[in-house]
Structures are given as C-alpha cells and as structure tokens.
Design a protein around this nucleic acid. Sequence first.
DNA 1: GTGAACATAGGGTAAAACCCCCTGTTTATG
DNA 2: CATAAACAGGGGGTTTTACCCTATGTTCAC
Lengths: 212, 212
Amino acid sequence: MKYTVVVVDDHNLLSQAIGGLISDFEDFEVLYLCSNGKELLDKLKNPKNIPDIVLMDVNMPIMNGIETTTILREEYPQIKVLALSIEEDENIILKMLRAGAKGYLMKDTRKSELKNALSEVMEKGYYHTNTVAKVLVNSLKTEKTGVSALKEREIEFIKHACTEKTYKEIADEMCLSYKTIEGYRNALFEKLNLRNRTGLVIYAIKNKIYTP
Amino acid sequence: MKYTVVVVDDHNLLSQAIGGLISDFEDFEVLYLCSNGKELLDKLKNPKNIPDIVLMDVNMPIMNGIETTTILREEYPQIKVLALSIEEDENIILKMLRAGAKGYLMKDTRKSELKNALSEVMEKGYYHTNTVAKVLVNSLKTEKTGVSALKEREIEFIKHACTEKTYKEIADEMCLSYKTIEGYRNALFEKLNLRNRTGLVIYAIKNKIYTP
DNA sequence: GTGAACATAGGGTAAAACCCCCTGTTTATG
DNA sequence: CATAAACAGGGGGTTTTACCCTATGTTCAC
C-alpha cells in the first residue's frame, strides 16, 4: 500500500510537476493537487480525499500555508504536513513549524531529497534540513535566554532608527550618549541576527514596530 | 523527430519536475537540465547539446535569465528561449522580451498551457499569454506619458538596497562597479530628497517598490 | 550582602556610507 | 547630425557605522 500525498501550491506548473516527481517514487502516490488552503479543506470533507501527507506551499493566495496547517492540525491531526517554500525567512519557518509542519523544504531541494523527506516524515514523523536546523537552534537560544522580548527602550530606539536620523541624533533625542545607543543597536543586531541598520529597519516594518 | 528542450532553473526541484512534465509531451523531449546560465553556456559548447528550445528562469544566481538570453540570441540565434518566472514585474518581463525571449510564462501556468506554449513557439515563433499582453500594452502607455520618474536600473538598485547587503555586494550582484552603485544612490538621494540609505528603504516601502 | 541582570557610557579601529569632483559610451530624438 | 539623456566608471576625501573590549552604578532576588 502506497502512502498518499496531496500537493498544495498556487503555482500550477510547480504542483503538477512535483506531482509528477512523486509519481516516480515507489512508496508514494499523488491523490490530487490544490491551488490553496481553502481548496484543500473543501476536498478533505470527503473521507476518500484524506491523504497521509500534504506537501504545502507557504505563500498562497486566499488561504496560506500557515493558516491551513493550523487548521489541519486541529481537524485532521493524522495528516502530516511538509512545508515547501522559497522563503528562508526565520520567522516564516518558525511559524510554519509551530503551526505543526513536520518539516520544511526549500524549493531548490533535489528530487532525491524530496523522496527522503517524504519517507522520513512517514517513518520518524519529522524531517529537517541543515538550514532549518540552524534556524531552530538559533530560536532556542533566544527563547532560553528570554532575549526575544524587546525592551521598551529598545522599541523606542528602533522607531528612531527607522528614520533618516544618525545615531548621534537619536542619542540626543533620547537623552542618551552615543555609546549607549550603540549598545542598544549591538544588542539588537545580536539577538535578531542582523547585519546592519537596513536589516533593523526591515525587521521593524515586518514586525509592525514601525509603520511607514 | 521530437523537438529538444533544455530547462534552466536554479530551483532543482522545479527544473526536475518540469523536465518530467515535458517528457509526457509527444512532440518534445528533455535534453538536460541546468541550474544557471553559465552552466548552460558551458554545455552548449558541445554541438550535441544544442536544443530547439530553452525554458529559462529569470532569477538565477551566477548568471540570470536576461543576461543568458542576450548571449544566446547573439551566439545561438536558432535556439528559441521561453521565459519562465514568478516575477510579474513589468520591467523584468519587458527586459526578458527585449533580450529575445519568444514568450513569457508565469510559474502558475498549467501543464496544458506549457505544451501549447512550446508548440506555438516552435510553429509560430512566439507565444504570449494575456498577462504578458496586458503588460506590453501598459508599457506602451507609460512609455508615451513618461510617467515613471525612476529609471529601471534605479528601481532594481532600490530593491537590493532594501536588504542587508552592502553596496559592494549589490554592485557584484548587479554586475556593476561600486562607483556606479554610488552613482545610483547619489542620484536617488538627490531627486527624492533623502539623507541616507534608511530614508531610501522607507521610501521604497512606502511606494511599494519593495514589499517586506 | 553578594552576584546576576540591566542601563549606562568610554576608547579605539576598520569598514561602510556619504559627498564632492570628473570622463567616457550608448541610445533616443528633434 | 547634434544634443540630451541614460548608463557606466573613477579619484579622493569626510562622516557615520559597526564591532571590538572594558567599566560603573542601580536594582532585585536568593
């Protein structure tokens, strides 16, 4: 008996193509393809349509991979979700895994790795690449040290950093020395894994600390 | 005699998968797969490796689709290039077509449309979807009215500036000298009235040039 | 009452960003 | 054909960032 797989991706060419690849695997067969989470949930209402694994894209219109995975875990906990995305964003990966994905594949994965991933998810219950492992370790660090929560002053600083002001000017406005401001910046770079101010600005906007 | 196709895409899963799809078509067969333009050019040095059609991704590391297509048109004008991308960016599509692509497919194309596209490119010499047609009409409009204040390369540069990359790294990626990049930056600061890179990032996001 | 955690701040250095100035080449257009 | 844009590159400078490592005083828990 082959394991059944459903591919959910808004890029039809990709889902059809991946479906084709999976058909080549001995132990797996494709049940059907979907273009978004909503379509999948509709399909699942028929018990005949319940697969062993869902290969899920993260970015989709109508209902994205994170929402869909969350719902799946509640309503069909037996279905294993394997995420598939171009996104290497740490937060996205974490969100997807927290939502209940058993693994996270990049779209530049090779065919053999896809087969591996499918097999391991069915056997061991999970599959993680090095990239994802790194992200996980990093997130554990921040969770243990409790660093993840940003302090009041840091948030205030970030908002200033999202303007054209120099650090010297920010220091003056916050009534702190330039060196203290550097301290805030360095701490943030460290715990948010950023290289420079541009990274901080993008982080702030993504996380709605600053709204342009 | 089947027409031969080469798939060039840095996402291995995608290229393998698309290769699989094409193998199902009566009139076409896959010659080989490549991960980037450089790899393709190397392969082509052997006359046995010259295909009828190249299915080319636009965004690739090392050598992207636009550069590669330009070179192909010069050195192997008999090879027909069909672009394949997620990018719906007007400028990218235009560039790719100017570079000599015979058609532009989105990655959400259906299998049947891919077959159509391949056949039409071989028979008529071109294939254009509605989306691309719209873009073309639109570009004619804006070219007439000259609405776009920002130049193509500037927009491309801005997108890079919204990442953690240094200007040196941006220069490398855009295949320009650091000094040229500085030129773009200075021009933008001048005409947009900005003080520094942070200002540029905020401007880009406000004006939807870059979406975090 | 001692150590951890935190906010503050300094000194020094190297790299990146910023700011002038300047020279070509290609491409479009009157 | 001339002229203007757009495009690509360079010299040489200052300012700002980024990254080291260290130090002091306060608060708070054990």
